[in-house]
């Protein structure tokens, strides 16, 4: 029977919702146990959040000062040790998981399944390739540990509240390297919803035209309580920071409502939104590829249409 170790992602003492999504994928394996591993300098608050996620059997914690920041070179040897006895190690497919999971897989001498979209069996998974233009079914060798990253947009977060899993301290004897050091994290301070987990997202593209013009996107997003995203073109042009980029190489998101404003819809961008519930496209070019995937399309000048939308919303 399968035993799954899910690696918790967290920041600032709070559990990231990507963890509960990875737990959903672990539940789909139908194994006998799902344990969540919390590596941090201070684990208590994170562990108690993780213990509430439905389906979690135990929460294991490793509290070390070296774990204050998520450095893959430091975390991977601990995860590789902790993986002993587990059939699967699941990590969210966020920049955190994409960084650390392959390092774990290599230490274990196994391949990694990236971006699991669905679990077809304990060792059979579906994942996207070519920017989501093909979906492959892959079979992992049952003789080895399965290390996989879980595509957050494909999984809803496991419910929380009904569970109260035991929290246990894990003693890991692993020599940790000092060759890699954290310097700083520059975060855009924002009261807006988090792009990756927001139920509504308003994104702007090259059509917005400038950094100053992007204000209209931010204001509209605030009006409807949405997170703000952007196309690669808008990020490359310097309108907004890189952490707002949605697409193949940026964030893959699945909000209930996605509004693409002034975005033409390159396939690399569409990859990032294909799991969205409802897609709205606003673009002055009626031939833009974004309209091929939009549930609702509106052709026109965004600087005229956004104020009209705001008035219509009331």
């Amino acid at each position: 029977m399968s035993k799954i170790l899910v690696i918790a992602e967290h920041l600032g003492g709070k559990l990231n919702s990507s963890t509960a999504r990875a737990v959903s994928a672990a539940v789909a394996v139908k194994g006998e146990a799902i344990d969540v591993l919390v590596l941090a300098d201070s684990v208590d608050a994170i562990a108690s959040e993780a213990a509430k996620i439905d389906g979690v059997s135990r929460v294991l914690t490793v509290a070390r000062p070296e774990n204050a920041h998520p450095l893959a070179a430091v975390l991977a040897p601990q995860i590789a040790k902790a993986a002993a006895g587990y059939s699967h190690v699941f990590v969210p497919s966020t920049t955190f998981g994409k960084d650390v999971a392959p390092r774990v897989a290599a230490l274990l001498g196994v391949a990694q399944v990236s971006d699991v979209m669905s679990v077809e069996g304990p060792h059979t998974f579906k994942r996207p390739i070519y920017a989501g233009n093909a979906i492959i079914t892959v079979e992992a060798d049952p003789a080895h540990t399965v290390v996989a990253t879980i595509r957050s947009a494909s999984w809803s977060a496991a419910a929380t509240g009904a569970n109260n899993a035991p929290i246990e301290t894990l003693a890991i004897d692993a020599a940790l390297p000092t060759h890699t050091r954290f310097v700083e994290l520059k975060q855009g301070a924002s009261d807006r919803p988090d792009l990756q987990s927001a139920s509504k997202v308003v994104s702007g593209g090259r059509g917005v035209g400038s950094k100053e013009n992007f204000d209209i996107i931010f204001k509209f997003a605030d009006k409807i309580g949405a997170a703000v995203g952007a196309s690669r073109a808008a990020v490359d042009a310097g309108y907004v920071p890189s952490d707002l980029q949605v697409g193949q190489t940026g964030k893959i998101i699945a909000p209930e409502l996605y509004m693409a404003i002034g975005i033409s819809g390159a396939i690399q961008h569409l990859t990032g939104i294909k799991d969205a519930g409802t897609i709205v496209a606003i673009n002055k070019d009626g031939e833009a590829p974004i309209f091929e995937v939009a549930d609702f399309g509106l052709v026109g000048d965004l600087f005229k249409l956004i104020p009209e939308l705001e008035r219509a919303i009331g």
Binding site: L71, T95, D99, T180, V183, L185, K186, Q187, Q196, P241
Partner: peptide, 13 residues
């Protein structure tokens, strides 16, 4: 590094 939360700076020997 471009990470989900923003820009992270690390030093690597």
């Amino acid at each position: 590094r471009e990470v989900d939360a923003g820009l992270e700076v690390i030093e690597a020997e």
